[in-house]
Nucleic acid binder design. Structure first.
Lengths: 143, 143
DNA sequence: TGCATTTAGATGCAACTGCATCTACCTTCA
DNA sequence: TGAAGGTAGATGCAGTTGCATCTAAATGCA
């Protein structure tokens, strides 16, 4: 049996805590402001980055790391709130093409006004720019 | 409005992905082996580290980063499976003292036989020992 | 072409989570 | 001592997630 080193165990524990605490802190601020959570933000962001023809649900999935049914339901909730729109997909009769609505764009901006500062407080203030680059470099090697 | 730097944003995205992917990979292996998930492991671990008088529920909470009601329910499920035992608390009539059972100890060992290698595969193999120390150092500064 | 396989997405059901609130006990302090 | 306030933990309810499975459309291939 291959046992991870002491340092690996410590790093894993630290990874867990750092992510969980930052995530909770940021989502708490969004909730306090009556705004949706980070998954919603990510969907809005990805759709806003995309040219008007929209994204397919299955293209969004790997970006958000959500399971297929999770994506399906998230999309339905966001559509019900009018933040995104579903269109029939011309090149694939099974598919759904997604686009962001004007209201979705507005919501993303409102979210960023809370998300940005919360991210800065949870992460930005805690490390120098140099350390931040190092951290990102290590983390990317993990994926 | 304070906007986080480009590097902070990248680090946050990398933190999210690294944690989510490692967590999913590890839990997938546990599930494949028919074993409980990481929260259960953490409870078993903490109780095993403690002298026989046991831990209180509220002492476990900050270690696991679970909300109070989450802890309460997790404990009930684990007790129902016979992995831990609840005792009345002599020094506080409201409280519950928790201890691990023999079966709990056995289960923790079985879990570690899967968890350890999974952690090694998801993290240990991806960074040198030196990098691992650096990573842990940065992550600890975040909390 | 036509049947078998694969892929996109939806959904019924059971388990889990979050919120608010509740009960029971403990602590403080007039 | 006893009323007011605080703390430990449980729980009803509504919303969410995970699993398995379903439908419908696309693809592969004999």
């Amino acid at each position: 049996m291959v046992i991870p080193s002491e340092h690996t165990q410590k790093a894993w524990a630290a990874l867990f805590r750092a992510h969980t605490l930052a995530h909770e802190a940021i989502e708490a601020e969004l909730k306090k402001a009556g705004l949706p959570n980070l998954s919603w933000y990510d969907v809005l962001w990805e759709l806003e980055q995309t040219s008007e023809c929209g994204l397919r649900a299955f293209e969004l999935q790997p970006k958000l790391l959500l399971p297929q049914y999770g994506m399906s339901r998230l999309i339905n909730r966001m559509e019900a709130q009018g933040l995104i729109a579903k269109h029939d997909c011309p090149e694939d009769g099974r598919g759904v093409a997604l686009s962001i609505t004007d209201q979705g764009r507005k919501t993303r901006l409102k979210m960023w006004a809370v998300y940005g500062p919360a991210m800065q407080k949870a992460l930005g203030e805690k490390l120098s720019e140099n350390e931040m680059v190092q951290l990102a470099t290590m983390l990317k090697k993990l994926t």
